[in-house]
């Protein structure tokens, strides 16, 4: 056994095999991000008549390991918009620092009222993401931006690591696009129905969708953040617990694991 300090804390080759050098090369050509490392799962959002509700759980996974269980993935901007990040957590933190700088310089220019609204912010971020993908050095995130647009109407849009953008009455990233989006679309199939939805209804729908995500998404957590944005600002709760969970259905699921019947 090698007890030299260089060997401390390293996995033994005879047990784990040789280290795969493609992951960490100390010298050699610069390599850009090829895959996300610590990741956050779905973010979901829905528009209602006076604003937007958005939610994401507080988990940061390292592969299949639930690595950090208290990571806030919703970020308010200038108390007038909200951002939800899924994907790489370190890229999220980079963007967070970047946005802090942006909001400071904006506040310096115009201290009285925020001027970069959600629509402006979304355009800025999508340009940023698109520029990075064009340099083959992507920021590995898929994000939702919620708030109000130039006309004071509710605004909800997505931007991803390729710079793709789209907007809809309800949106979800990652697994949420498969699991939560169909539920939300039942309530808001189009803009007209989003205009009729009340705040309470929207929050209930999002909570319901978060529950389904926790049931079915293996990389999810039952502690989550939920934000409501209206013209009065952002109300962000970062320590919500999923309520009324019922695992009764689990009994009826067959064909997995150690089940024998």
């Amino acid at each position: 056994m090698d007890h030299r300090p260089q060997a401390w804390g390293r996995p033994r080759d005879d047990v784990y095999g040789a280290y795969d050098h493609s992951y960490m090369q100390e010298n050699g050509p610069k390599q850009n991000t090829q895959q996300p490392i610590v990741t956050g799962t779905s973010v979901i959002g829905i528009k209602f008549k006076d604003g937007v509700v958005i939610a994401a759980d507080n988990l940061a996974s390292y592969g299949s390991l639930a690595r950090f269980t208290d990571v806030k993935r919703l970020r308010p901007f200038a108390d007038s918009s909200i951002l939800g990040f899924s994907g790489d957590i370190s890229d999220m933190q980079y963007l967070d620092r970047h946005l802090t700088e942006l909001s400071l310089s904006e506040a310096y220019e115009s201290p009285d009222k925020p001027r970069l609204n959600a629509a402006n912010l979304h355009r800025y971020l999508s340009k940023l993401l698109y520029n990075r993908r064009s340099k083959f050095d992507p920021l590995w995130n898929h994000l939702l931006v919620g708030g109000l647009d130039d006309n004071g109407e509710p605004f909800l849009a997505a931007a991803d690591l390729l710079g793709s953008t789209y907007s809809a009455p309800s949106l979800a990233t990652g697994f949420g696009a498969m699991l939560a989006q169909p539920i939300m679309r039942r309530y808001v199939p189009d803009e007209e129905s989003a205009k009729k939805l009340t705040r309470e209804e929207a929050v209930d729908i999002v909570k319901e969708a978060m529950k389904v995500l926790f049931y079915r998404d293996a990389r999810s957590l039952d502690t989550y953040s939920l934000a409501v944005v209206t013209k009065d600002g952002v109300e962000l709760k970062e320590d919500e617990k999923l309520e009324n969970q019922s695992w009764a259905f689990a009994d009826r699921i067959k064909g997995y694991g150690t089940q024998t019947v």
Partner: peptide
């Protein structure tokens, strides 16, 4: 306009 999708604030432009 291209990066933010809004008209340049006059104060910023003059600055």
């Amino acid at each position: 306009r291209l990066t933010y999708g809004r008209p340049m604030p006059i104060h910023t432009l003059v600055g």
